[in-house]
Each structure stands twice: as C-alpha cells, then as structure tokens.
C-alpha cells in the first residue's frame, strides 16, 4: 500500500466522522467544523487516489487549492451568519429546545 493510498483511505474515514458530526452535533460552529472536516476528507481522496496512480500530479493539487479557497469562503460566510444569528437570538443551534409560539414548524428538519 502506497502512502497516497493511505491518505485516500484516511479521507474515507474522515468523511464518516464528519458526516456523523454534521448530523449529530447541534452547535452551529461544530456543524461548520464538521463540514470542514468533510471538505478536507474530500481533498485527501482527490489527491491521494490520483497520486497513487500517477505519482505527483499537479492537476488535483491545483483543484484542491481552488477547493480550499472555496471552502474558506463558505466557512467565513457561515461564521459571519452564525455570529449575527447569535447576536440577534442568543442561540447557537438551529432547532429550538421548546417549540416557539406562533411559528409554524414543519415537524421535520434538515
């Protein structure tokens, strides 16, 4: 087994952990961190699998750089939204503990 392949397999494990964190955790910042973990896992697989085949491959490396910038932008936007949400409501979670009066919750949540 080559080192890049090990990276790719690690990526598979990290995807599972990240997905569990994203669904299971309630704190919004933790959800965002879980998404970042998933992002890194994806990048590991992208680079690892390609380099296992080709040796050093600049194309996936460049793709990952682009992907990192995109994920930084998304994370930063998420953090700004979370901060403002916290400022307005004092809450750090999407679902409220007690159902709000007067709001029409749909029963299922994403």
């Amino acid at each position: 087994m080559s080192t890049p392949l090990l990276y790719a397999l690690t990526g598979a494990v990290l995807w599972g952990i990240g997905l569990m964190g994203l669904i299971g955790l309630r704190h919004l910042l933790r959800k965002l961190l879980a998404l970042n973990l998933i992002g890194s896992a994806t990048f590991l697989i992208l680079v690892g699998l390609a380099q296992h085949h080709n040796g050093p491959d600049p194309v996936p490396q460049a793709l990952v750089l682009t992907g990192i910038v995109v994920s930084i932008a998304a994370t930063a936007l998420g953090v700004v939204l979370i901060r403002r949400y916290f400022h307005l409501t004092g809450r750090t979670e999407l679902e409220s503990e007690v159902p709000e009066a007067g709001r029409d919750e749909e029963g299922h949540s994403g």
């Binding site: 392949l5 790719a8 397999l9 990526g11 598979a12 494990v13 995807w15 599972g16 952990i17 997905l19 569990m20 669904i23 299971g24 697989i45 690892g48 699998l49 296992h52 085949h53």
Partner: peptide, 20 residues
Amino acid sequence: MLLLALMLTALLGRSVWQLS
C-alpha cells in the same frame, strides 16, 4: 447515525481500494 457513518466509510473505503 453511527451506522450511517460506518456504512459510508466502509463503502467509500472499498471503492477507493478497488479504484486503486
């Protein structure tokens, strides 16, 4: 959730292994 995550990891790992 744990099962879902484990299943995903296993399938993903298998796929990566096969592709390698």
